[in-house]
Simulated scan of single mutants.
Amino acid sequence: MATSEAQLREKMTLFWHGHFACRLREPRFALLQHNTLRAHALGKFPDLLLAISKDPGMLQFLNNQQNRKQRPNENFARELLELFTLGRGHYTEQDIKEAARAFTGWSYNPQGEFVFRARQHDRGQKTFMGKRGNFGGEDILQMIVENPRTADFLTAKLYAFFVSDVPNPERIKDLSSYFYETGYDIPKLLEKIFRAKWFYGPDVVGTKIKSPIELLAGLQRQFDLTYADGRSPLVLQRALGQELFRPPNVSGWAGGRNWIDSSTLAFRLRIGPALLQEAALEVNLKPDDDTEPTAPRKRRQDGLRTVRAKADLSGLHQQMQEAKERELIEKLSQKLLQVPLQPETAALIQQHIPSGVAHADKVTLLTLRLLSLPEYQLC
């Protein structure tokens, strides 16, 4: 997200990573799943759904390798219906049981390749969502995407991710119908959202709280940040509550106001200024068995980490080179903030800038002040 030219694909990969949330211990499987999500991130949802349903990481995480005829395991079938497609309340317990039978025999080999184990598959008649037949896993997936409720569920989640945490039923209904009509074409749905006039309205712009990953990727991209230690981004993710490849559960990250509490907000406001000034940012992590991103060193308090980074502000200085002194705060706030800077806040910031400082130094000082504002946490 911080370095790629394919920004939308990376953002959608992040979305699907949270939607199909898996916490995998096997690095190879995590990489395979990540590549699958990226490859299908801007394709059609039925193709992505089939690919992720055959993904070894998903099958392992939801125990489908234990799903065999006469001994069905319902974990994958349950999450498929509840969290990945239809949403709670739009299926029955019997649908889960019958879907689980259809996915018996779906497994993988040690190389991370999908394997259909025919001897373990239940070939009996199954009744799923009012239809009866000798269904296999592919049949279940097809019936799921044929149900318009799947489009409703996915569209609502994409709306919350890109637009607002407050749902707008009329907009979502219109978008969902279009998504369904296009055969779940993800790029067409996103284009419809991004071309809508309301997407740029005051009720949308600057109303969402940046996720920790969006915050960190934005800082790294805007200011060409380079971390002194390759593990530092993991430490920051952990401290902020969103560690990639380690979602809290199969539901993924809750998002929205859940990103903010009294401690995380204070830490968020310190991150930008500290990293841009190459200051040592001390981070206290709670020890947490296998999720501890770095092992404690000898004679150091358990959980204490130091993060350092180097920023390059030359690009920003160049962009602001022609800006007059009285325009600086306005131009910088327009570039760095998604919400208008209140006049009283702008005046207060400028009061703390020493008189007589060089133009480039003033740009740097104003930038540090803007990054320490709550407004910088919004997108």
Rank of each mutant, 00 (worst) to 15 (best):
S4L: 11
T13S: 10
W16D: 07
W16R: 08
F20S: 07
C22K: 09
E26V: 11
H34N: 14
T36E: 10
A41E: 06
A41Q: 06
A41H: 05
L42M: 12
L42I: 06
F45I: 04
A51F: 05
A51I: 08
M58H: 12
L62S: 10
N67Q: 13
R71M: 11
N73E: 05
F76C: 05
A77R: 15
R78I: 07
E82A: 11
F84E: 10
F84I: 08
F84D: 12
L86V: 10
R88S: 14
G89A: 07
T92V: 03
D95E: 05
D95T: 13
E98M: 13
E113M: 04
R117T: 09
K126A: 09
K126I: 14
M129D: 02
K131F: 06
D139H: 15
I144N: 12
V145W: 05
P148D: 01
T150N: 11
T150P: 13
F153P: 09
K157P: 03
K157R: 15
L158P: 00
L158G: 01
Y159S: 06
Y159G: 02
F162P: 06
D165V: 00
V166S: 08
L175C: 02
S177Q: 15
F179S: 03
I186G: 03
P187R: 01
F194W: 06
A196D: 15
G201Y: 12
G201L: 09
I209Y: 11
L219C: 08
L225D: 04
Y227V: 03
S232E: 07
G241F: 00
Q242I: 05
L244V: 11
F245H: 12
G256Q: 02
N258F: 05
S263G: 02
T264C: 02
L269Y: 08
L275Q: 13
A279T: 10
E282V: 14
L285K: 07
D288G: 04
E292L: 14
P296T: 04
K298L: 14
R299W: 09
Q301G: 10
T306M: 07
A309L: 13
E325F: 01
E327Q: 15
K331V: 01
S333K: 03
S333N: 06
K335W: 01
E344C: 02
A346N: 07
P354G: 01
L366S: 06
L366N: 07
R369W: 12
Q377M: 08
